[in-house]
Simulated assay, not measured.
Amino acid sequence: MVRVGEILYTNVHPFFFYMDREKLSAHSQFIPSIPARLNAAMSKGDIDVGAISSFAYGEDAENLVLMPDLAVTSHGSVGSIFLFSKVPIEELDGRKIALTHSSATSTHLLKIILQRFYGHQDLIYTTMMPVYREMMAEHDACLLIGDDAIQASWREQGQMYVYDLGEKWYDFTKMPMTFAVFAMRKQALKQEPEALRALYYDWKQSEEKAHADGYEQLAHAVVKDHGGNVDFWQGYFRKLQYRFGPREQRGLLHFYRLGFEEGYLPKDVDHLSVWDVDIDIHSIN
């Protein structure tokens, strides 16, 4: 039985919305959770495959293989990863920032943006539960991701300075940012290649089907669970990119390089192990 991690955020819904779970249940067990817990579970070997934070792959690259052309990326604004601040971002040096405990990629991306791109060196970070009012009670800014960020942006627009991290990354690098990747443990790939292949094609087909109708049916379902309106959610899904081609991979490698230089990664990840579904594994430098 393959243990499958399923991120509980809307940004990955296109991959899961049309999955044939009944068919896949013959060989797959789905384990839903937030990114940080799935990252830890993948590292410990408690799940075999699934969407994880891209930073988590960088931490454990020697034990993982990436699925091809499956990821959550943005070429600019991502729409669900926001820094909320009481002061302009240029004035944050020396200030206190609350970080969500939900994701590794976004917290390290924020640190790179603030320290590398804005030159802020005297920042005080606190990691805590993603509850906006508690985070902002004693901090000058806070980072939220996923549905928490979207809900807060609806409430706080015009009340706070709100910065989209995908947009900031692109402004400074002119490269896409990959927030989540679909990774497999190498041991699982050796033991269950056919089950993993079936999962890969189902994920791929689900996203393609969601894309084909402009994410309309998916948007209607998300409105019921999270509020908002269909136009908002269709625009949100259309803005995100669900490919993981050479350009996205180079952007991710650049993120890893900066993360290593800033001391956030123990090793310089200079290549990605990407599964060739029909043949074998290959690397992108």
Rank of each mutant, 00 (worst) to 15 (best):
P35S: 06
V222Y: 04
R238F: 03
G166F: 00
H101N: 15
M19Y: 01
V49C: 13
Y264H: 09
Y242R: 10
V230K: 08
T107M: 05
R185N: 10
M42N: 02
Y132F: 15
K239L: 09
P68W: 04
V274L: 09
F15A: 09
L144A: 04
S102N: 14
D69S: 02
G119P: 08
P68G: 02
L66V: 02
I34P: 07
I150V: 13
N39Q: 14
D20M: 04
L218M: 09
R247Y: 06
F117Y: 13
A198H: 12
G45E: 02
F17W: 09
A71H: 02
N11M: 15
P130Q: 11
F237A: 03
H226F: 10
L123Q: 05
L218A: 08
D48E: 02
V72T: 10
K23Q: 05
R197K: 15
E207Y: 07
P246K: 10
H282E: 14
W233K: 02
G251D: 04
Q191Y: 13
S77G: 04
S102G: 05
F179L: 11
A98E: 00
N285G: 13
T173I: 08
I97M: 03
K267L: 03
D225R: 14
G251W: 09
V230I: 07
D69A: 02
I281D: 10
A149V: 03
S54L: 00
F182A: 06
G79C: 09
T126A: 06
I281H: 04
E208I: 10
H75G: 11
A188K: 07
I150L: 02
Y163E: 00
R133A: 14
Q29V: 15
A152S: 08
F84Y: 05
D122L: 10
I89T: 13
A71G: 11
I31Y: 15
M177S: 14
E262L: 12
D60W: 13
V162F: 02
